[in-house]
Amino acid sequence: MIDDRIKNLINGAMDGELTDAELAEMDQQLGQSEEARRYLAGMADLDAYLKKLPEQAMPDELHAEILRNVDLPVQSATKHSNAREWSGLYRYGFAAAAGLLLAVGIYQFGSDSIAPGDFDQLVGTMAPGAAVELDSLAFETDEVRSTASLERRQDTMILNIQLDSAEPIEVRVDFEGTSLDFQTTLEDQRSNLQVFEGATSEVRAISQGQQKFAVFWHRADTASDQEGAITLEYSSDGTLIRQGTLVPRW
């Protein structure tokens, strides 16, 4: 049985990611182990098969179709001045989509001076009903200050996150251990925020500066009153800064 060290070296060599010293170590181990050489041969076969998989030709009309369907945003100095920008990512048939579109339109194009609390109003537009506060998390380090609060409005679970960071911070919201049915995210884009959704188990956002965003879930048909925990991870440059959990309840 060969150990993981030589396997790791062989994998690294295939990817051209070994140092000279590691290459020398691999060569030495290969010279001493028939099993390591067999492992290398098997991995080299796999590598070759993957590299031999042919490139797929794109459908002829796809390029033109993409160009036809993209509406580039028209940037203007006034629209993107110091005004807060509001945007929502609404997908998967969210029930309040029409209300959201209206609200986004108003906030995006009509306001340079949105009063505090408007984000909450927009959340309320998307998920009407009285808010029941369920759980919260707050922390402050040298790099980031954040609060996260979980609330329920009827059959919608909402996680509100506020961030203030000098450097880009990644926030990962992992809801794999729950039966929550992801619906959408909503951003208050005063600074840089990119949201990447993995709709069934996690939402990731990268933020810099002051930022607010919210994640919405519906109650799944199979949900019980007591859900598993939502895990929040804050990291910077791949290093975990803070982790916490919030517990939803229906």
């Binding site: 179709e65 509406d71 945003p73």
Partner: peptide, 19 residues
């Protein structure tokens, strides 16, 4: 093909937010 099209639409229609 669907994913390719959606990918470019999402990226380009939000390109004003690209850092």
């Amino acid at each position: 093909a669907d994913v390719t099209q959606v990918t470019f639409i999402k990226a380009l229609e939000h390109i004003d937010r690209f850092n």
